[in-house]
């Protein structure tokens, strides 16, 4: 029985794959739109059926007519609900990574066709739906959360686009594979020694950086020289503008190393490294990364953090 269920699911997935192949841009048309009544739709039809029976039994043509009108309205609602989804173009947009076990976000751009599309609900499998309405020819951008289960690049699965507008009696929907992927950083795992080479001492020096630079001499000011380096004392003495010259300071740098976490399983290593990247970033340290399949030059700042996390997320995937 279980196996039968699985086979059916596989067949369904394969059929979907053929019918709506993955693409970063999908325009919904009749081949891609499914439609089925909602519970309220069935209730509505039940009322129409009751009125029909009433009309027959009481020989009341107006009751019959009313029940036919309800059925016709239901049929017209099929067209409207279908049209509300038809012509919508979905484009895969940007990506906001998140930590494994938490949520990331993927952008989907919803573009309207020749008419307005109201109350579209979009969601990735197992995630929260968002609602959007698009005016004709306009575009709306939606960031939809995705649940990230494990580290690395994660397929978003099929996006479910659904609408019940205008009457809520029918639901038309599509399952679209936007070929969208979300990056999952390793889940930070606190604790342990900082797996770094370069030493605490070097890191400590970062804060008094300017003092370590060696003064080399003065030269006359050239437009474009930093005003911070102008020798204001000599200017005040009337010797004109001069610029102080320093030699390049030797910088302390910290290398976070995969190798320094022996006896820990690989995923946990990434998690530890991730924790330390975040810690060092918060402390404003300059750090680099050395992993089995790549490394990152030491630096600091948000950009460095992004890069570090990305490398940690993709490491071990065979060159992401």
């Amino acid at each position: 029985m279980k196996r039968f269920g699985r086979t059916a699911r596989q067949l369904w997935q394969r059929w979907l794959q053929r019918r709506i192949p993955p693409s970063r841009k999908v325009t919904l048309d009749q081949r891609r739109i499914f439609i089925f009544p909602t519970g309220y739709g069935f209730l509505f039809l039940l009322i129409a059926a009751l009125l029909f029976i009433g009309g027959i039994n009481y020989e009341n043509n107006l009751l019959l007519g009313f029940s036919f009108l309800l059925v016709s309205l239901f049929l017209i609602a099929i067209l409207h609900t279908f049209r509300n989804l038809a012509g919508v173009t979905l484009v895969a947009g940007g990506m906001r990574p998140g930590f494994a076990g938490a949520r990331g976000a993927l952008e989907v751009r919803v573009q309207g066709g020749a008419h307005a599309h109201r109350s579209l609900w979009l969601r990735w499998p197992g995630a929260v739906a968002e609602e959007v309405s698009v005016e004709p020819g306009q575009q709306q951008s939606l960031w939809l959360t995705v649940q990230l289960s494990r580290r690395g690049r994660q397929d978003s699965g099929r996006l479910r686009v659904e609408t019940r507008y205008p009457l809520g009696l029918l639901r038309s929907w599509s399952l679209v594979d936007l070929d969208h992927q979300c990056l999952a950083w390793p889940k930070p795992l606190p604790g342990g020694e900082c797996p770094a080479s370069g030493g605490e001492d070097d890191a400590g020096q970062q804060h008094q950086r300017g003092g370590n630079e060696e003064f080399e001499g003065l030269r006359s000011y050239v437009a474009g020289d930093s005003l911070r380096l102008v020798d204001w004392k000599s200017y005040a003495r009337g010797r004109g503008l001069n610029t102080k010259q320093f030699s390049d300071p030797a910088e302390g740098r910290l290398w976070l190393e995969w190798q320094r976490l022996p006896g820990v399983d690989p995923e946990s290593r990434y998690s530890r490294l991730c924790y330390w990247v975040l810690e060092l970033d918060r402390a404003g340290e300059r750090y680099g990364l050395i992993l089995p399949d790549g490394s990152l030059e030491p630096d600091l700042g948000p950009l460095q953090r992004e890069r570090a996390l990305e490398i940690l997320a993709l490491s071990g995937e065979g060159g992401g």
Binding site: I53, I56, N57, Y58, E59, N61, L64, G65, F68, L69, V71, S72, L73, L75, I76, A77, L79, H80, P166, L167
Partner: peptide
């Protein structure tokens, strides 16, 4: 929508087979 439904209703009205009462009901 109701305007669009009217022609369909008319078709139903004309074409759906009329049946004798299923059971006797007097309103």
């Amino acid at each position: 929508m109701i305007l669009q439904a009217l022609p369909l209703m008319l078709v139903f009205f004309v074409l759906v087979p009329r049946m004798p009462p299923l059971w006797n009901l007097q309103v």
